[in-house]
């Protein structure tokens, strides 16, 4: 690319060759500047997306290219109780984890927005769970949830609140609660720190004015903080929902979908059928089944952004 730059001299100004005209043409230049990114994204993102939809309509297995079988995979999945269990789990996991993450994250953001000593340090510590690789923190949770040597069980036993070790990952309901708790632990920092950034843009004079008008703490939160925070909440929660919905790592490490498929999410089921199971077509069909929900989340985010535009007087 470097070789393409002609040296710009004074006399070249009136000898506008085709080349120098191209070098000032924004569409021509834009094409070349976009090329590296576009090549990677089209080749490894857009094309696989199309290929995935195609695969979901074939009976491809590992080592054997499949033939087109139409919607047979989806038809087969619609009769598969494990698939529907995974869909149910995914929704349960996403809904509960997102709501808890939002509430606790907002609370933490409000706390951090107070006048505190060591504020920068606190913020740095809070973000730590989000920085550390999910898989590695999930292994720490695996150890914390150990059936025999769980520290939580030990503490609860000491206090006399339970009589036997809690079977965190062996019992379907406990397992669901445990993976959701681990997901919430990892998700809170992201929600809290981004909402904190939003809170810091709210001028304190608005709160002062509301207080002078006789507003209570709750009223100030409800009628001053929340409306100003809504646009950023919409975006943050879309991201949060999106990444929780497609979560794979945490489940893979903690339970691999067990016990009795009680924690299988659509992503883990798709992996299990496609890679260890070898049924690439069926796995792709499960992945494709996630797309409508993702689209819904993206549309939600889009309207969240629209609202921000409107709130700021039409500026972009």
């Amino acid at each position: 690319m470097v070789a393409e730059i002609p040296s710009v001299t004074a006399d070249s100004a009136y000898r506008m060759s085709l080349w120098s005209r191209l070098m000032t043409d924004r569409n021509f230049l834009g094409f070349w500047f976009m090329l590296p990114a576009a090549a990677v994204l089209i080749l490894f993102l857009a094309w696989p997306l199309v290929l995935g939809i195609w695969l979901s309509m074939t009976d491809t297995t590992i080592g054997r290219p499949g033939v087109f079988i139409g919607l047979e995979n989806f038809d087969w999945l619609s009769d598969d109780p494990v698939f529907w269990l995974a869909v149910f789990n995914t929704f349960l996991y996403t809904t509960v984890a997102s709501i808890v993450k939002f509430l606790l994250g907002l609370w933490l953001a409000l706390l951090l927005n107070k006048h505190l000593p060591f504020k920068a340090l606190l913020r740095a510590i809070v973000l730590l769970p989000w920085i550390v690789p999910t898989v590695l923190s999930a292994i720490a949770f695996w150890w914390i949830y150990d059936a025999q040597f769980s520290i939580i069980s030990w503490v609860l036993l000491k206090f006399g609140w339970i009589t036997a070790n809690v079977n965190f990952l062996g019992d379907p309901d406990n397992a669901r609660a445990s993976v959701i708790a681990a997901n919430v632990w990892r998700g809170i920092p992201f929600v809290a720190i981004t909402l904190l950034a939003g809170l810091q843009t709210i001028s304190p004079s608005l709160h002062e004015a509301a207080t002078i008008d006789g507003a209570s703490g709750w009223q100030r939160f409800r009628y001053v903080t929340m409306p100003l925070l809504t646009p950023i909440i919409a975006v943050v929660m879309t991201f949060s929902v999106l990444f929780t919905f497609t979560d794979f790592q945490l489940i893979y490490v903690l339970t691999r979908g067990g016990p009795l498929n009680a924690t299988h999410l659509m992503a883990t089921l798709s992996f299990q059928r496609a890679i260890p199971g070898g049924q690439l077509g069926e796995g792709a069909a499960i992945a494709v089944a996630m797309i409508p929900f993702l689209l819904a989340a993206i549309l939600f985010s889009y309207f969240g952004l629209q609202r921000r535009k409107w709130q700021q007087g039409g500026r972009d």
């Binding site: 496609a274 690439l280 797309i291």
Partner: peptide, 30 residues
Amino acid sequence: LRFKGSRLVGMAIFLAYLVPPSILFIPLST
């Protein structure tokens, strides 16, 4: 550069950010 369609491309980049690896890994593996 604000080439023709740059806004659209910007939006597409944002959408690409929202495509999760868990729906791409099967076709990518092939």
